[in-house]
Design a protein around this nucleic acid. Structure first.
Lengths: 198, 198
DNA sequence: ACCTGAACACCGTTCAAGT
DNA sequence: ACCTGAACACCGTTCAAGT
């Protein structure tokens, strides 16, 4: 776990952002850092460990909100940061829902969420549950947007099926999914308020 | 798209449920159905198509609620079905957040969600957004539970970090994460009620 | 015309052979 | 003692060679 480890993990993210997660091979990452393939194995035990490290580095790129800001603004900031992160590394995002949060950078993010809910006045007995409720929505949403899962591959097929996947929203100005995320945050804010200790 | 296609896709799910998604190779699936590897390519164009088909077959296993039931019961039923699905096919679940819902079995599930929200009285202008809000939470939650992302790989590491990932819940009887999902559904029910047309 | 299996360019990881 | 690259057992897909 020398500094070479982080160099390798960052190279993994570089490859993933450029060519997709499926292009993240030990050979490709080694080439990216200028090592021989087998030299990687002296800094990490397996590709599994590389992916776990990438999850940490990914969350490490989040620009976390200032703890002195009001909690709604902090929630909004972290949500928009996650959305932007997904657009930078679309194919890596699903790992955030399948790997346990053990890396320090991951724990850091969960702590910010706890702080938000505490400041909102959520009862401690509900705090961890509500955090998982909010976080799984945010991650699920950002993963879906990043991978364009809300769109049909073939618009004509969808038209035939007549399922209005994306309702027209005349008030939306620039970024359709960012606008929708902000609407969701209003709903989630109400949900959080309903969970305050009485 | 003869019936052989579905046979192959079901074999893919069988392999994935038994040995994990990473074990789903064209060779392994071919062996499962008793075909030669290259014979698969006369029924589907690529492994990509196999995975898309598996998403459809996965959602096809959902036992959908009766449309005549009250909407809260329908929402609960579909949520618990998704949780159970994740436990049967943990490694396949993330595909539900990265592939567009074009297969008929996928469209069917989205239609049920629309029906639930319509019966709840959600304004049409908010219907598609709220459906995505609920669905991304349910999928994110079920993917996390299925892949044990809520637990730390090493409990000792987590203790050192002193992040209470799983708060003790004395009232929870059998299935900890199922109980939590039911609590979340109460919160989401309130969220849905708040989105009703005025 | 149809099917198949060898082959190509990969992959993660092991380990013997080199220095 | 340390590093490396050949090798092993895979992978998705192509395509020429067979019938």
């Amino acid at each position: 776990m020398g500094s070479r480890f982080f160099e390798i993990v960052r190279a993994g993210l570089t490859v993933a952002g450029r060519d997709g997660l499926s292009a993240v091979s030990m050979r490709a990452v080694a080439a990216e850092v200028g090592f021989t393939t087998m030299a990687l194995y002296r800094h990490l035990p397996s590709k599994e460990a590389l992916l776990d490290g990438m999850v940490g580095a990914l969350l490490g790129e989040l620009d976390l909100p200032d703890a002195t800001d009001p909690w709604p603004g902090r929630l909004r900031k972290i949500a928009l940061e996650l959305l932007a992160l997904g657009r930078r590394y679309p194919t890596v995002m699903p790992l955030l829902l399948t790997r346990p949060y053990v890396a320090p950078e991951a724990v850091r993010v969960v702590r910010v969420m706890y702080g938000i809910l505490e400041d909102a006045g959520v009862a401690e007995a509900e705090l961890y549950r509500v955090e998982r409720l909010i976080s799984t929505h945010l991650l699920g949403y950002c993963v879906s947007v990043a991978n364009q899962a809300f769109w049909a591959a073939d618009p004509d097929t969808l038209a035939v099926e007549s399922v209005p996947v994306a309702a027209p929203d005349p008030s939306a100005t620039g970024d359709r999914w960012r606008d929708e995320l902000e609407r969701n945050l209003v709903s989630l804010g109400q949900l959080i308020m309903a969970e305050r200790r009485s």
